[in-house]
Every structure is written in C-alpha cells, then in structure tokens.
Design a protein around this nucleic acid. Structure first.
Lengths: 226, 226
DNA sequence: CCATCTTTTTGAACGCGTTCAAAAACGTGA
DNA sequence: TCACGTTTTTGAACGCGTTCAAAAAGATGG
C-alpha cells in the first residue's frame, strides 16, 4: 500500500468520525479529542490533516451542500414556474440544514470567499472562493432553465446568481433565526419565493429592469477585487 | 458606601478594562484573565458580573453604537437629499467599526433579537430585542425627517426600518468582507446609498410601490412571532 | 457587639482547541 | 540489508473560557 493511499485513508477516517459525531452530538459536544479517539489516532494527528476544527466543519458543509443538490434536482419539474422551483429549493435547504442550526456561524465562514489572499498552494485546504459557490449557482441555473415561462432575456444570464444571492440571504436569516424550529425562516421562504418570481416577471418593465440591473451591478461592484 | 454602589463600581471597572483592551489588543489577545487583572479583581469575579466574554463584547457594541449615533447626527443637513444622508451614515458606521473587524461575528450575536424566549428577569443581561435596534432605527427616522425632497407618503412610515435593514445588510457584508481595509464594503455603501434613494423616488410609481410594500410585508411576516 | 443571612470575591480546577519537539513509519537508492 | 531523507504519528504542554465550592465582606436585627 503506497503512502498516499494510507494517508488518504487516515484523512477519510477523520472526516467520517467527525461527521458522524457532528450529526449525533452536535458541534459543542464533538471535540477534537473525541473525533481523534473514534478515528483511532491522536489529537495531534488530526491537526496534521486539518488545520482546525472549523475545517472539519467545512467538510460537513460540503457534504450537506451535495445533499442539497441531489435532493433538489429531482424536485425540478419541466414547465413548473420559477417561484415554485425557488420555493422547493430553499425549503429543501432548510430541511437539510435544520438539524445543524448550531453550526450556523461556523458554516458562514466556510461559505464566504476569503477575498483574493492565500499564498501559493499549501498542504492544507484549497483557498476556494466560497465553498461550492459555483456548484450552488449551477443548481439555480438548472432551475431557471427548466422553468416556464422563461424569464425575460434581459436578466436571464444574471438570474442564477441573483437567486443564489437570495439563497444566501435566507441562509443568513436562518442562522440568526432563534424561533422554535426556525419557523420564521420557513415563512420567509414561502413569501420570498413568489416575490422573487414576481420581480422576474416585472423585470419586463423598463423601470423594474433598470432596478434589477442596478442591483446586479451593485453586487458585481462589491465583489470586484481592485 | 452602600453595597449597590460598590457593586456598580466593580462592574464599571470591568467594562472599562475590557473596552480599553479590546481597543488596543483586539478580541483574541484580550483574555478574561487580563481583563480581570487590569481591573484588579479575580477571573471568577468577572463572571459574577458578566456571564461570558461575549457579554463584555456586547458592551463594546453598545458603546460603538452610541458613538455612531452621536457622530452621525451632526452630519445630517436640513434639505440634503436622502441618498447622501444614507451614504454618510453608513460610511460613518464603517469608520467606527473599522478597527473592530475581527469582532464581527461576535457583534452579530448581540445585534440579533433572541426571538421571544428568555424567562423572567435574571441577574445578568436584559433580554433585549436586538441591542439598540430601536435607537438605530430612530437615527434613520431622523435622517428621513430632515431630507428633501420628502419621500412619498406611501412608504414614509416604513422607510426608517427599511433603511435600518439596508444598514444591517451592509454590516453583514462588512463582517464577512476580507478585502484589505474592507474596501469592498465602502464601495458597496457608495453604490447602495444612491440606489436606495432612487428606489424611494421610484416608489411613486405603482409598480415599484407595490414591490416595496411586498418587501415590507415580507420582513414583517418574518419577524412575526406566532 | 454578636449572630445570621445575603452579596461579593476568590482561586483552583475542568475541558477545550491548538501547538510542537521528538519519535516512529515509510520510501528510496546503493 | 542498510543508511538517509521525508512523511506521518504521538503525547505532553499551553493558554483559553468557564465553573464552583468555599471564603470574605457587608447588611440587618436584637
């Protein structure tokens, strides 16, 4: 067995151990020591593979994102309207993240792009521009593609990213939502989905379209790196 | 000297010690031990007055908020337009929070309302509905009042809260903004202020006004507690 | 002044995330 | 097989936020 294989094995062992405990015990009661012990290695060794506990949390986040994608895609029905698609996708996200509400703050760090920064490739981590952002946008692009009626051409290209923005907004709201079962977040989704769809329709009108374009420029400008 | 006075003295001593160190050393290097030592009391005693380090951070947040208010009010010029007022207020906020960027995540916890919850008054803390939210909204109400032209009647009542929402959005962006000097956040403000003002003007048009009303209902619905 | 009850203060202790020097295991060419 | 460089693993240690039993200080009534 080559070294890289063995190494990858230990890594996986740690991830599996961490995710399993995150699921069953939550963030606080899952300690680096308990993760290492369950994986049959020392604490120090866990830190050889992961720079911090949060980096293990990032693995959980990636996993949940994949789950969100694979649970959302089957919900998309050809010809269904965009608002309904958006509603289903956002609700699916709440369903999946639900059991992990106390991870919220830690999730955010991994979901947000670390600007440019991050020197040449180090051992650990990737220096992603927001974990899975591209994949998430792709999901919304798919939703747009199969929706009827098709959104106005003028905003069709930007729409997936705009919907992703809505998605992030809802997630942010959810993180700080302390209502029981995050009831408020669900209500927010129920209302925000038709509203967003309505806006898309209305963007046929020049006034509204101009506003939407302003908003797009706003966020593009905010992301710019110079 | 009565007991309550002495007690209040110790409390103030701790707050002053904490805020002073937060300012000069940042969050991480300010430890509960160093706060207590500088205040001339034991660590345990600090925990008699504050349930956690974050509760001391909340004191800093309150202080910065007051500073923001008292630095913003003189910037408001009778007859100046709303967009400019908004721009000045939001920039002032970035100026004041600037040195405390690494507190961001901790600030958010204190700025967000803990839903209903929180039983009858305990020793510690207040169980606020979002530290200083009302005061912050009042600042935006003042900005609206002195602005010319006056916003359309239809949305004038909701406007302060809407502007506060924009303010919170920008703050959220700032928290996760890792660009040097949070340059992006400043750019966001420069763009978002005129855009918001433009929206206010446009809300004279029925289409736009309906959208704005939808948005208002959206957030009212999300805050509802049943 | 003493006895008693409450408020305030202490300092040791716990468990946590994280670091690090040193050891072990592994890979490689002679 | 051995020697040598690299990767992996260890376990003790550090400083942190937080807790808690017990001590000290203060208030109150006789």
């Amino acid at each position: 067995m080559t070294a890289t294989v063995k190494s990858e094995q230990t890594r996986r062992l740690l991830i599996d151990s961490a995710l399993s405990q995150f699921r069953t015990r939550g963030y606080a009661k899952t300690t680096m020591r308990s993760i290492a012990e369950a994986a049959g290695v020392s604490v120090g060794n866990a830190y050889y593979y992961f720079r911090s506990k949060d980096e293990l949390v990032a693995e959980l986040y990636r996993f949940l994102q994949d789950e969100h994608r694979s649970r959302s895609l089957p919900l998309l029905r050809d010809g269904q309207n965009l608002g309904e698609h958006l509603r289903l996708i956002l609700l699916a996200n709440l369903d999946i993240m639900g059991p992990y509400h106390d991870f919220g703050a830690h999730f955010m760090r991994t979901a947000m792009p670390p600007s440019s920064a991050s020197g040449p490739s180090r051992r650990h981590g990737s220096g992603d521009e927001g974990v899975g952002r591209a994949k998430s946008i792709a999901l919304f692009r798919q939703a747009v593609t199969v929706s009827r009626p098709q959104p106005p051409l003028a905003i069709r290209d930007d729409l997936p990213e705009l919907l992703w923005l809505v998605h992030m907004g809802v997630t942010l709201f959810w993180i700080y939502d302390r209502s029981p079962g995050q009831r408020r977040s669900r209500r927010l989704v129920q209302n925000v989905a038709p509203l967003a769809a309505k806006l898309v329709i209305l963007s046929r009108l020049p006034v509204v379209r101009n506003i939407v374009e302003d908003v797009v420029r706003l966020f593009q400008g905010a992301r710019r790196d110079d």
